[in-house]
Computed example of a mutant assay.
Amino acid sequence: MSRYTGPKARINRRLGGQIFESAGALRATNRKPEPPGMHPRPRKVSTYGESMREKQKIKYYYGLGERQLRKLFDQAGRMSGNTGENLLLLCERRLDSVVRLSGLTHTRPQARQGVSHGHFTVNGRFCDIPSAQVRAGDVIHVKRRQNIVGLYRGRVAEFNGQTADWLAFDEENLKVIVHRLPTAEDITLPVSVEMVVELMSR
């Protein structure tokens, strides 16, 4: 699941949302928004089926495996507040998610690959762990190598979105500053997380 390489538009159509953000997947999803299959038709889905679908949204959107999601769920349960919100906020605070939300990449798989290949430093230190949790005050830099800097300058120039409110992006220096932690209003994935919490609490 964490390295899904199959047809992304099919996942978008099956889960009914823009889970994968690549241009090809979005074009194909817009062209055929109905669920995949030769003769797609509305089917009654059980509560369990709906919960599984919501869980799959989280796993595909953030690129998580079952074990990673379970680990985050257990961590969220030990935190104060709403477990579902805490789970999604922990997902948003992953380093690869921060790179994506800053506008340095167009998709989360791109961000995950960049982090894994060592394209970024956190507070001046090398970090190649996509799941690393950022904290308020952290500074993420693109590594100062000519080919890497050129790659990300090109991506930033093509970016037509908006940097997340809880991040500050310095386009000139290719630097991202986490000026605060995200809140429930900053969560980017529309998902019924309470159904996921109920499912995973069994």
Results as ranks from 00 to 15, higher is better:
A184N: 11
Q56W: 07
F73L: 03
H117V: 02
F169E: 08
A111L: 05
K57G: 00
T121D: 11
Q146V: 10
E21G: 01
R135V: 08
A157R: 15
D74N: 15
G49I: 01
T107M: 06
Y48W: 10
G63I: 05
Q75I: 13
S22K: 11
K175W: 06
S80A: 15
V176Q: 11
L174W: 06
V191E: 05
V156K: 08
L89Q: 03
G114E: 11
I129H: 12
A25Y: 14
D170M: 10
Y61M: 02
L69S: 03
G77D: 04
Y4K: 13
G124K: 06
P40N: 11
Q162P: 02
S22V: 08
R135W: 10
R27N: 13
K32D: 12
M200N: 03
R94L: 11
M200V: 01
E92H: 03
P40E: 09
Q133A: 15
G63N: 05
P182F: 01
Q56K: 05
S192K: 14
G16S: 02
V176F: 04
V45F: 03
L199H: 01
T83S: 01
F20S: 06
T5W: 10
A25H: 12
L104H: 13
L104A: 04
A76K: 10
F159T: 03
A9C: 11
K71I: 06
T188F: 00
N160K: 12
T105D: 06
K32E: 11
Y152S: 04
Q56F: 02
M200K: 08
P36W: 14
V156E: 06
R13S: 07
P36D: 12
I19F: 02
P35Q: 09
N123T: 05
S22W: 11
R70L: 13
R94T: 04
K71G: 02
R10N: 06
L26N: 08
Q146H: 14
V196T: 00
D74A: 15
A25S: 10
A168R: 10
Q75H: 09
N123K: 07
S97T: 15
F169K: 04
N160Y: 05
E158A: 14
E54H: 00
S201R: 10
T5I: 09
R43H: 10
P109M: 14
P35H: 09
V149S: 06
V193Q: 00
A136S: 15
K57E: 01
R108E: 02
R94S: 03
Y60D: 05
R153N: 15
